Simulated scan of single mutants.
Amino acid sequence: MKRNYLSHICVYITSTLLLASCGTSQYLDLYAPEESGLNVMKITDESSNTVMGNRASKFVIKKNFTISTIAGCEKANYYWTTNKLLSISPNGDELAYLSEINKQNNIMIRKAGAQGASTQRTFRNVLDFSWGNDDNLYFSDFSDTQRIQIGATNAHAGSIMRQLTNNSVDINPVITTDGKLLFFTRIDKSGPFIWSLNLEDGALTSCARGYNPCIINGNNDSFICVRNSTAGISEIWLVNYVEGKETLILSDKNRGFSNPVISPNGQWILCQGNSESSITKKNNLDLFAVKLDGTGFIQLTYHPADDCSPVWSEDGKYIYFISSRANKDDYFNIWRIRFDLE
Rank of each mutant, 00 (worst) to 15 (best):
L341W: 15
C214L: 04
I160S: 13
S277M: 08
K84A: 13
N220G: 08
M52H: 08
I224V: 06
G151D: 15
A231S: 12
Y241Q: 04
S68E: 00
S89V: 02
N220H: 05
L270I: 03
I262F: 06
K62F: 09
F193E: 12
K58G: 07
N259I: 13
N265D: 14
S251E: 02
M108H: 07
S206W: 03
F193Y: 15
H8E: 08
E94S: 13
E34A: 14
N284Q: 15
R227D: 05
F123A: 08
N49F: 12
S222A: 13
R55N: 14
L95D: 09
P260Y: 00
F339E: 06
I43T: 00
E200G: 03
G244T: 06
Y79P: 00
D135A: 05
V11R: 14
S7I: 06
S309Q: 03
G210E: 07
T16N: 13
S25K: 09
L95K: 08
T69L: 04
E34T: 07
S196T: 06
N77L: 01
T122Y: 07
V290E: 04
N83D: 08
G92W: 01
K281A: 13
E200A: 11
Q104N: 11
L248K: 15
G266H: 02
S258G: 13
F184V: 03
F332P: 11
N167D: 07
L238F: 12
Q272K: 12
L285D: 12
I194V: 14
L28T: 05
C73W: 02
K111P: 10
K281T: 09
R209A: 11
A71H: 07
P173G: 03
S229V: 04
I216M: 08
M1Y: 14
S324R: 11
Q115R: 10
I107C: 05
Q120K: 09
V60Q: 15
F339I: 05
S47A: 07
A155D: 00
Q120H: 03
S143P: 01
S206H: 09
S99I: 00
S222H: 07
F332M: 01
I236D: 00
E276C: 13
Y331Q: 14
T295D: 09
D221G: 12
K2N: 11
V40K: 05
K2I: 08
C73R: 00
Q299C: 10
L30T: 07
C22M: 10
W268Y: 08
V40G: 00
S278D: 13
G294M: 10
A152H: 02
I334F: 00
E94F: 14
S143K: 11
E243W: 12
D330F: 12
T66I: 03
T301D: 00
S47V: 01
G273I: 03
Q115C: 10
P310V: 04
A71D: 09
N240M: 08
S196H: 03
D135I: 00
N283R: 15
G72L: 04
S196K: 05
D45C: 02
D134H: 03
L300D: 01
K245I: 15
I298N: 11
S275Q: 11
R162I: 02
T24Y: 14
N49W: 04
